[in-house]
């Protein structure tokens, strides 16, 4: 079943064509990887899907059947539909604690407003808070961050910060999560753990769209791979087929070698 459908997506920055009529589908419950040399438009595509930048033309549909129209929606609305993301250059709330960072993730799944904040006897807000705290502690435990819950996010190591950003995205209980180079800068050990964790998430029914350079991460866990080069899609298919596609080999070996 289709969860995300991108059709003829085009985005221009001045004279640069960052995305050139890109189309592909993401099936529900699959891990789809987006690969391509630097500057191929991968992050721009993420930015279009999450409403950070507006595409010139093309459509993005999310959900079963025709689904929600995402292009033209604000980032917070898209988050409410059930899409969460991480950033290539980690963007944590550095002066908030680790726990607070994850709690911000639950914002879309909670409702208490001004009144609930001020009424000490409102039990609805209290229950909601319990639920959010439970959810966050579980996530922190799964990602091996629970012992740092009260540290400032900026005090974490690089690998821990990557995991925290993932925990924060998952706290919003998304249907689709977009991960922008989650393995970048991780140690070999951390990469193995990340891959296991992503497969675990897939088992739980989550759909993952992934940008990743490391083929040792992409090939074993992806169900489907989409290749971008200079803003255009040059190939897509199962990992094995894509790896043998001559256009892909040329795009990679022609411009730069990549592990």
């Amino acid at each position: 079943m289709r969860l995300l459908r991108i059709q003829r997506l085009t985005k221009r920055f001045g004279g640069l064509l960052a995305l050139d009529r890109v189309s592909f589908d993401v099936e529900r419950g699959k891990i789809v990887s987006l690969i391509g040399p630097n500057g191929a438009g991968k992050t721009t595509l993420f930015n279009c899907v999450t409403g950070v930048v507006r595409p010139e033309t093309g459509s993005i549909r999310f959900g079963p059947e025709s689904g929600e129209t995402l292009e033209g929606c604000a980032p917070h609305q898209i988050a409410q539909f059930g899409i969460a993301r991480t950033f290539q250059n980690i963007r944590l709330f550095s002066n908030l604690s680790v726990l607070e960072n994850v709690l911000v993730g639950t914002y879309v799944r909670t409702k208490s407003g001004l009144l609930e904040a001020l009424l000490p006897w409102g039990s609805g807000a209290h229950q909601e808070e319990r639920w959010a705290l439970d959810r966050c502690s579980r996530l922190l435990e799964q990602l091996d961050l629970i012992s740092f819950a009260n540290r400032l996010a900026s005090a974490l190591s690089y690998g821990q910060q990557r995991r925290l950003e993932l925990a924060r995205a998952l706290a919003s209980a998304p249907e689709l999560v977009l991960l922008d180079e989650p393995a970048a800068g991780l140690t070999f050990q951390e990469r193995q753990e990340l891959m296991e964790f992503l497969q675990e998430l897939k088992k739980q029914g989550l759909t993952i769209l992934l940008i990743e350079h490391d083929m040792k991460v992409v090939m074993p866990i992806s169900d489907w791979v989409v290749v971008l080069d200079y803003g255009a899609k040059i190939a897509e298919g199962p990992p094995k087929a894509v790896r043998e596609d001559p256009r892909v080999i040329e795009a990679y070996l022609g411009s730069r070698s990549n592990g």
């Binding site: 999450t50 409403g51 950070v52 604000a74 980032p75 917070h76 898209i78 988050a79 409410q80 969460a84 993301r85 950033f87 963007r91 944590l92 709330f93 550095s94 002066n95 908030l96 607070e100 709690l103 911000v104 993730g105 914002y107 879309v108 909670t110 208490s112 407003g113 001004l114 609930e116 904040a117 001020l118 000490p120 807000a125 909601e128 808070e129 924060r168 995205a169 919003s172």
Partner: peptide, 27 residues
């Protein structure tokens, strides 16, 4: 109370990194 509430946390998130906060569903 406001500071400790869900709204207070959302304000803090916006203050720290507005773009990240928006992509987490904060209007």
């Amino acid at each position: 109370r406001l500071r400790r509430s869900r709204i207070g946390l959302a304000w803090a998130a916006l203050r720290e990194d507005e773009l990240a906060a928006r992509t987490l569903g904060i209007n």
